[in-house]
Design a protein around this nucleic acid. Structure first.
Lengths: 341, 341
DNA sequence: CTGAAAGCGCTTACAG
DNA sequence: CTGAAAGCGCTTACAG
């Protein structure tokens, strides 16, 4: 499969010039015909296309990028692939971009600002046509690179009010508040907030929870269970046990992500703790499996597929230099009440 | 954020020539110093590096790719991102490639041969330095493109015996057989095989199961529950219910993937079916959560992180034209017996 | 609607 | 160890 390094310069590839020769037109006409750019005489275009097909011509994207000064791909930066949330968003955005002829270059930041910075630098070196990043919170260097590059950028998952920043997402704080109100309405009085990872969006949910509990006069700092470790089923189970043991008066736990909440439900089952009888459990994001848990998990459904789609469409507009109707698009959320609260 | 289209040709980018001018050396010397290629006088190299840093120089990868005739990235083709198996493999392989200076271009085939073909075509147009694909089963056109491109390629997840095909994986049939033997040893007599997606690896597991049941004189075609729909928790629950209702004599179900088995466990709980008392449930892959289920799921652990790592290292060898010790690497599997069987 | 010229920013291959 | 020349394969900008 591995070829010996060729001694000569030529690559043996079929080039635009080869196609042009066979079609009997100039290379630039072939280029235009193949890209569907400008008006090309239909007869010539057909000849160019036939010749390209006959020779199995594949355009060299590196050459195209160099000549046109922008790639045919979009760089996307997300924190993790092991969170179904981002996978869903990614698949949706990729489908939209693909239909528009753009490929997707994925970078995983692992929630690390320095890694994000380095990834962005690498991705910018590829001259992407557009950029999609997760959230609004970035290091000064990252922000500077994004601005300096002149590459259009869409921020995903959150909503912004700053000028010149394009974003598609939802108000994480509002969503956190809505779940807290639901728990309050169910008569819960001592509602813990259990969080992992502690990324900006998690902290915004925490803010929403705080606001509602304070308004109800029920806030207590001891109710905040924040662990910077990555979110996981196992961690959720451990946090749940901890809370039960160290603060038995807690009658509800609002987990910042469904994987934690699912882990808690599994732990409850193993420990024989009645949910929601003894204690209510709520999650966030409505990840796969939450509706199948026993009891089925109450959660907040976040529209990540739509965020991906709408975000990709917004980016496409920016790439085409069409002014978008609005810079920040709030796609909202849905409270999904099931059996666990 | 969006820049107006510049009228002039120059991009305003800092180029190698700018760095060379500042450093007082030729561009080619800067190029060599920055890439660490060949011996460059340490003093000159330092000047070049300082100048590059001062100007914030970012090499144009499109130009580099065009000039050197191969990119600094590896194209990876996987079926799905919503299967944790592939995400784990991807993260592992990406970490290895990244350290070696290669970026990863991910393509999702959705288990569709035509989509795979088109993705490969697009990816090859980017001139990747290497290629990683899932499994050994590909359309004739895909195989032809891979061979014709001359790009080194590693096949993941399965083991091959064909010459010239590099692969890292495990024997899916052996693993399927091992789980079946375990169930037999536990005294189960009517062991169903429940599968979704029906991709090549699933069918190889099915073969292993068949072989063992036939050897035991216990095979029955009615025990094969194959559904081409995508694998999911919900589908696993439905299949489990179906099997219980339509073939009550079944005393064990071997699911081809853990998500199906987890769904079955959840359904069992909801239905009040005792596992493993009334019926045993086994899975495959040891996905996240399987050890936390109630009862904890018996499964086969597949070394997907190692597959990603070893696969990436093998590809790196091929890219550097070092002859690998062996073309096909079998990383094996582990039977993980827990509570559900 | 079509094309000749120039150039995108880098690296290869060669000579010294 | 260093560099001038040529070229990678395409598209832009201009002229017709």
């Amino acid at each position: 499969m591995v070829q010996p390094p060729s001694r000569k310069r030529a690559t043996g590839r079929v080039t635009l010039a080869d196609v042009a020769r066979l079609a009997g037109v100039s290379p630039i006409t072939v280029s235009r015909a193949l890209r569907g750019e400008r008006a090309v005489d239909p007869a010539l275009a057909a000849r160019a296309q036939d010749a390209a097909r006959e020779l199995g011509y594949v355009p060299d994207l590196a050459a195209r990028t160099l000549a046109s000064r922008h790639g045919t791909h979009v760089a996307v930066l997300i924190p993790m692939l092991s969170n179904a949330l981002f996978v869903d968003m990614l698949e949706a955005l990729q489908a939209v971009l693909r239909r528009a002829g753009y490929q997707t270059l994925i970078g995983i930041t692992h929630y690390d600002a320095e890694e994000e910075e380095q990834l962005l630098r690498e991705q910018l070196a590829h001259r992407p046509a557009g950029l999609m990043v997760t959230g609004l919170d970035h290091s000064a260097a990252t922000l500077e690179m994004m601005a300096h590059s002149g590459v259009p950028c869409v921020h995903l998952m959150e909503t912004s009010d700053g000028a010149g920043v394009y974003s598609v997402g939802l108000s994480q704080a509002e969503a956190g508040a809505a779940m807290t109100r639901h728990l309050l309405e169910r008569g819960r009085r001592r509602i813990a907030f259990a969080a992992a990872q502690l990324d900006p969006r998690t902290l915004q949910r925490l803010d929403g929870w705080r606001r509602e509990l304070r308004a109800a006069g029920l806030h207590d700092a001891a109710l905040e269970w924040c662990d910077p470790a990555p979110s996981s089923l196992a961690l959720g189970g451990r946090m749940f046990e901890d809370i039960l043991r160290r603060d038995p008066a807690v009658d509800a736990v609002f987990f910042c992500n469904d994987d934690l909440a699912q882990g808690a439900l599994l732990a409850a089952q193993r420990l024989g703790v009645a949910v929601p009888g003894r204690i209510a459990v709520a999650g966030f994001n409505d990840l796969v499996g939450s509706e199948l848990m026993v009891p089925a998990l109450t959660t907040v459904r976040t529209p990540r597929r739509e965020i991906g789609e709408v975000g990709a469409r917004l980016l496409l507009q920016l790439i085409r230099q069409e002014p978008p109707a609005q810079a920040s698009i709030d796609l909202g959320f849905t409270l999904v009440v099931r059996e666990s609260t």
